[in-house]
Design a protein around this nucleic acid. Structure first.
Length: 497
RNA sequence: GGUACCAUGGCCGAGAGGUUAGGCAUCGGUCUGCAAAACCGCGUACAUCGGUUCGAAUCCGGUUGGUACCUCCA
């Protein structure tokens, strides 16, 4: 059995995964800012790390998965007008900040549930950890790596860089940053442009504000993750995940803050998922090309040809490795939908295959093929969570399953043991690890009763060779999304789409 | 401007010095009353120009094109 390899953004190579505490994993993922509706772009990290979480659990680890909710809002840095994103939106919509935060948090949870992501163990909010953040800032000031100006506190990046490798995570060199940072208007209280805020003094109109040793204000962008991750996972923990766009400056700053406050580097393995693009462009608010989750599921968006089931989105995301960009298009999603249906159908067929009782396989080569691809699922998953390859392996196995079912290959072609392995492999990867679910609605039982009647009537018609009637039944059902399948043995099954 | 990364068959998308990726679509066949589904068969693709090598899509360099980060961002 191969060992789990994780591509560590910090060292830029795949490394064997060894947790700090044997049998346990601390996993932190940067959560959403709940100042607006979640969109397709947000789906990627949460689905990616949901699979990471699921797989670690599958491997037997006890995982503490922490994913924060950023509800304090953040301001534009670098001299632009300090404004709280949450507060700004709140005025526009005439809502209380808390009301707004609650609304979008609920929507986010709704989306995550539809994607069948497991809930994190802890979902801490930034506003609920102001004290922890203030305490951490105090430590950094005491250590001499932060300074106060007019009620705001900034981290001294230049000094930090004299002793620690600032920029290592994101591959940046401080000198370059000092030279190339753009000049932005406004007063700059910071000693250097690269310094970042730990605490920001709140102007009078700012709604969200808290008392602090430096006056009324609000925490800087990066400090919440450092404060909350260390509180729940310890000063050093195993895996920190998030989108690639957070690598700099957010994660870089997290490392700097935590290193000074806690005297050690915070994270052993940094994982970054790549972006979802649309027409080759990153999906983001600034590009005005976002598709909200609600629009995606309802199909109500000019770029969408139809509504897409959450499982299709989940499957589509998982058919690409998490470190590659993923380009969105209707065509690609259509393909994903069909592919998922075929794979899931094969999985259902597999569940119905009865144990053939064959001690040895009559088709040894096929038997070996099945075993090899089942084994490959584990190896590929261990290779930096290569879900794309895992899915390809499952697709290799689908024809084998269908062939056995339809008798193109005899039941004893693969041994009883191999069939059992095939079943557990599909179950583990499809449901437990990839977290997939069937596309069809839950059958109410009543619909099934009706369909059985209609199927029986069609069967009668066919016996009478009344094909006009039988075809009418089939085609009409097909038109409303119920597809009949005439099986080899004369039975008829159906699938809903 | 600085720093990275990426360019794969009609489309999407793995892989990574010599061995099948996979999916979707198309086409042919089997099955079928006809279909659908399923099964079988078919694609010798890796931007371009050089170089290294017995051998490169995979390594090195140049070119072109694209993207991301440097500013809120998943």
């Amino acid at each position: 059995m191969s060992a789990l390899l994780i591509y560590n953004s910090y060292t830029r190579q795949k490394e064997a995964f060894t947790p700090i505490t044997p049998g346990h994993v601390g996993l932190y993922v940067c959560g959403p800012t709940v100042s607006g509706e979640s969109h397709l772009g947000h789906a990627r990290p949460y689905i990616t790390f949901d699979v990471v979480n699921r797989y670690l659990q599958y491997l037997g680890y006890k995982v503490r998965y922490v994913r924060n909710i950023t509800d304090a809002g953040h301001f534009e840095e670098e001299g632009r007008e300090a404004e709280d994103k949450v507060a700004k939106k709140a005025i526009l919509e005439m809502l209380e900040p808390m009301e707004l935060v609650h609304k979008y948090t609920s929507l986010f949870h709704w989306g995550m549930r539809r994607f069948n992501t497991l809930e994190p163990s802890i979902e801490p909010t930034a506003t609920g950890h102001i004290i922890e953040q203030i305490e951490m800032i105090k430590k950094i000031i005491a250590a001499g790596y932060a300074y106060e100006v007019n009620g705001s506190v900034y981290f001294d990046v230049k000094k930090y860089n004299d002793h620690y490798p600032y920029g290592k995570l994101s591959g940046r060199i401080l000198e370059d940053l000092l030279e190339t940072s753009r000049d932005l208007d406004g007063q700059d209280e910071k000693r250097e442009k690269v310094d970042f805020a730990l605490w920001k003094s709140a102007p009078p109109e700012h709604i969200m504000r808290w008392p602090s040793p430096w006056g009324e204000g609000f925490p800087g962008w990066h400090i919440e993750c450092s404060a909350m991750s260390s509180k729940y996972l310890g000063k050093q923990f195993d895996i920190h995940g998030g989108g690639m766009d957070l690598q700099f400056p957010h994660h870089e700053s997290e490392i700097a803050q935590s290193t000074i406050a806690h005297g050690c580097t915070p994270v052993n393995y940094w994982m970054h998922n790549n972006m979802i693009t649309i027409n080759g462009r990153k999906m983001g608010k600034s590009y005005n090309n976002v598709i909200k989750l609600t629009e995606l599921f309802s199909g109500d968006h000019e770029l969408l040809e139809q509504a897409y089931h959450p499982m299709v989105i989940r499957f589509y995301i998982l058919t690409t490795h998490y470190r590659s960009t993923l380009d969105f298009s209707n065509e690609a999603l259509q393909a994903a939908k069909k592919a998922l249906k075929r794979l899931w159908d094969a999985y259902e067929v597999l569940q119905k295959l009865e144990d053939n009782g064959a001690a040895t396989a009559s088709y040894p080569e096929l038997d070996k093929k099945v075993r090899d691809f089942c084994a490959a699922c584990h190896t590929d998953m261990n290779d930096d969570f290569n879900t794309a390859k895992v899915i390809a392996n499952l697709f290799e196995l689908a024809p084998v399953i269908n062939s056995i079912r339809q008798g193109q290959v005899p039941a004893g072609a693969i041994s009883s043991d191999t069939l059992a392995t095939l079943k557990t492999t599909f179950h583990s990867f499809m449901e437990t690890i990839l977290g997939l679910q069937p596309l069809k609605q839950e059958d109410t039982g009543k619909l099934d009763g009706v369909l059985q009647l209609v199927i029986a009537m069609r069967k009668d018609a066919r016996t009478r060779k009344d094909y006009a009637t039988s075809d009418k039944i089939r085609d009409t059902l097909g038109a409303i999304g119920i597809q009949l399948k005439d099986e080899k043995d004369g039975s008829v099954s159906y699938s809903l789409s």
